[in-house]
Design a binder for these strands. Structure first.
Ligand SMILES: [Zn+2]
Ligand SMILES: [Zn+2]
Ligand SMILES: [Zn+2]
Ligand SMILES: [Zn+2]
Lengths: 136, 136
DNA sequence: AATTGAAATGTTATGGTATAACATTTCAAT
DNA sequence: ATTGAAATGTTATACCATAACATTTCAATT
């Protein structure tokens, strides 16, 4: 019986590219950057790798950007909250346990059985907000 | 000086179509359904109407579905939480004030200036879960 | 070492989502 | 009547994602 999970070269290369960026990465950008390594790569090549990496909890899809970001809590079971900066475009993942607990309570009260939760906040991150303070 | 907001026939027709459904509606489905009324309608026609209606707070974009849903709290300033049922595909909007307050507190603590918040929960709604209980 | 079957990848084609760019029309204020 | 902004018409294209089928890989079994 096989191990059930194979991090093949293509999958590993896609994962590396995503992990190498703090910004969300687009599928077709990945495709362009994979091509030098895998000249025969096509959209399906990338999307299959992405599907696999999402299933394994190694990356997340950023719904509001149609893009992908590395998971900061791989392995641990978790719900994620993504903070997306409009200026530097970096995406930060937070566990936000209090928020998630409050959310779980709300779902229970509404008798809604949640299978997946996505919280995406667009705004200005602390690194981009700080410099503004110092401007004359 | 003009009123600044004009709910033109096209915009009104798109709004009516979205309001007429408790499920999220796709842009190209709207286009098909608008065509009998506005035979010259094109993608841009629909997307412009959608942009306008979102700006006015009359509809929301459901990021995880690439689709649109009528706002249940139009007029009132609010953050929304969308409950999306995998079975009946209905989308319910909730104010979820406790969740939003907890979220706001979290953002403040992280010094992240939020401009827009999107919470989308996929799962099974109470109407679809209830009948299962009664099954033999 | 050959067999085999599932998983992964290659390949072609197409469908679905969204916007850019420029032309024309509408419409209310002057 | 003029005018200028907002809205709409129109064409083209870019971007995002999957279906369907062929072929290859690879580890377990014989
Ligand atoms: Zn994560
Ligand atoms: Zn930033
Ligand atoms: Zn709303
Ligand atoms: Zn349901």
């Amino acid at each position: 019986m096989t191990r059930g999970v194979r991090l093949t070269p293509i999958r590993y290369q896609v994962l590396e590219l995503i992990w190498g960026s703090h910004k969300a990465v687009k599928a077709y950008d990945l495709l362009d950057r994979i091509k030098p390594l895998q000249p025969m790569a096509k959209p399906a090549t990338v999307y299959r790798a992405l599907d696999f990496l999402i299933e394994q909890g190694l990356i997340h899809r950023v719904e509001s950007l149609n893009a992908f970001i590395g998971c900061s809590y791989s392995g641990q079971q978790h719900e994620q909250l993504l903070l997306i900066c409009k200026l530097c475009h970096e995406v930060e993942e937070r566990a936000a346990e209090k928020v998630m607990k409050t959310l779980a309570r709300e779902m229970k009260q509404l008798a809604f059985v949640a299978h997946s939760k996505s919280i995406e906040i667009h705004g200005i991150c602390i690194k981009c907000a700080q410099p503004m303070v110092n401007q004359t």
